[in-house]
Design a protein around this nucleic acid. Structure first.
Lengths: 340, 340
DNA sequence: CTTGGCACTCCGGGCGAACGAGTGCCAGAA
DNA sequence: TTCTGGCACTCGTTCGCCCGGAGTGCCAAG
């Protein structure tokens, strides 16, 4: 089982199959890779690999195709990350350095990732719940309407409109602004929501109602878990290269509409490690033909969110893994800089 | 040429073809619609319609298929908007009323539109250039970093980070905040950018540099035409229902990645009218097999942006047109309310 | 102007044969 | 023990072919 040549054969099969999309036979294998043995020998190895479940033949007298288990072994033992070319590194750096705000960073990352890997890319917005509050701004638009602006350490900005029953004067609003900022700046968002709850009790009686309304919306915005579900998707056009429409493209297209599904695909594991989920290893049986390469991102191992690519199980794992890791690193750096 | 029955036949052909996706023959036509004449008569009419270019037969002895010109006549003369069901109206109202901010409104509109029409939906964010400034907020994060927040009449919020060479004190910043707001609140954004340019000249000499930097970024954000290109896309999974992958799905998938292309598709015409662009009538020859149903939206005939759906030329025009118009109306109302 | 009849066209499905890629196995060589 | 060349076999794919059926255009009659 720990046979070097058999592993070589498996690697060759994976690489050829990824390149050609066609089952690969023993003869083509020895030709395209310098294996130094005859087709017959390779056939023996292939038979063994098939017994062990690493490859599979669609029907008698067709070539072999890697199974999910085969890809798994390939990824774990045989693949070395394809280093990014200098041009690619430069593209990443210049594109992301030019981003003006968080939205821009996310949009550009998705685009980048999909172009580098020629696959569908997914980037989760930095999680609300793991951010800290950087600033809260209260802007009175009319005497009875206040806009709340919540600025987070990641650069993410949430806004809410509040209708008040009674008008507030600007000086009161200013007071309240100071109070909410004191209570929450630098604090993790969950803790900030708690800290804010008691705040209205301390203000002057005339203000209490307005303060309650404002703080209410604020804490609601902070604990709105839907906002954690925001993701950006790009590169769907790459689906066009897929071979099998019904088993591969359709379910994936449907999944891409459901952001909750996407997040689960990325894996909210909370770890920053580069993870590869191959075919049936994922949580959805309809997506048994697709693999996910994902990783967390965030400054200094602090997990803010995830990003990755999804594609057919027959995909270029080394290349995708390298691209995903490279983009995650740049994004982490950018977010860190903005926060310094 | 102005023959009532021939028009009836054309309408029947369009409806049948949209329903079945198959060329429709004379016999099936008289059966499914109560035309009250024999197949032979219908055949004569069909021959005439074909001479005039409204329909086309893929090959001898196949049924007829509407041409783009045929769809055009159908849309212009024969189609009556399918009224929305009560349930659909309710769905629109409850979904959009629950939106918390502009992003939310746009996201939900896209989703709604794609579900109502079972097609790919596109919604353009309200144009920056046609909005007025509602408020500008300057928040000092550290002494040398200021975050600018630009709140527009549409509810759209733009944010930018400014690095200053020298620290500013809060009171100076407050002064500047008052000044920029005075200069720009209520003013159309292009005019506001102009008005702001001269502003730094009036401030105290120590502030000039900071003011210049801040106003510079602000006017840049205001005149950033890229921001006008923001669009949201949804319902791509509906592409899966398309018959022909290579001629229909692939080019459209590619177009959906290019937001500039999408905007051109929606038509920046600036009018609020409901427009239908059928097949080759559009600006892209690769999209000769797709149609666009779009309209502008915005309070009281004031064009803020466009929204619509794209699909195969063989699509349900009456239904799509009704849905697009209904959603546009609700979106307009919501934006108007937020702005009142 | 409409209708029924009729000959004609041509697409699509079904069937069978030839083909070829790939295999498994076996006997002999290293 | 391991590798290799040879060989018979399997089975999916492709091509040619035929045939049925849907649909048409045209014509003569109502």
């Amino acid at each position: 089982m720990v046979d070097d040549r058999k592993l070589d054969v498996l690697r060759a099969i994976v690489e050829d199959y990824v390149a050609t999309e066609e089952p690969v036979g023993s003869k083509a294998l020895v030709e395209r890779h310098g294996l130094g043995v005859s087709p017959a020998t390779v056939r023996n190895d292939m038979a063994a690999l098939e017994d062990e479940g690493y490859i599979h033949q669609p029907h008698t007298s067709a070539g072999r195709v890697p199974t999910d288990k085969g890809y798994r072994l390939f990824v774990d033992k045989l693949a070395t990350l394809k280093p990014m070319s200098a041009a690619e590194r430069r593209a990443i750096a210049t594109l992301l350095d030019g981003a003006v705000d968080l939205d821009d960073v996310v949009q550009k990352s998705v685009r980048l990732l999909s172009q580098l890997t020629r696959q569908v890319a997914i980037v989760q917005y930095p999680s609300l719940s793991r951010s800290t509050v950087r600033h809260i701004e209260l802007v009175s638009l009319t005497p009875t309407r206040v806009m709340l602006i919540l600025i987070l350490s990641t650069g993410r900005v949430e806004q809410r409109l509040v209708e008040l029953d009674a008008p507030v004067v600007d000086s009161d609003l200013a007071e309240l602004r100071v109070a909410v900022n004191q209570a929450s700046v630098g604090v993790q968002i969950a803790a900030a929501a708690v800290a804010l709850c008691d705040l209205p009790d301390g203000v002057r009686p005339e203000q209490v109602d307005s303060a309650r309304a404002i703080v209410g919306v604020l804490t609601e915005a902070m604990s709105d878990h839907r906002s954690d579900e925001r993701v950006a998707v790009g590169g769907t056009a790459n689906l066009a290269r897929y071979g099998d429409f019904d088993t591969a493209v359709r379910p994936l297209l449907e999944a891409l509409e459901e952001h909750v599904v996407l997040l689960k695909l990325l894996g909210e594991s909370g770890t920053d490690a580069l993870t590869v989920r191959i075919g049936h290893e994922g949580p959805y049986s309809e997506l048994a033909a697709t693999s996910v390469v994902a990783t967390g991102y965030g400054p200094q191992e602090f997990h803010l969110g995830s990003l990755g690519v999804v594609g057919p199980t027959r995909m270029d794992y080394p290349g995708s893994m390298a691209a995903v890791r490279a983009v995650a690193r740049y994004v982490s750096r950018i977010l860190d800089e903005g926060n310094q």
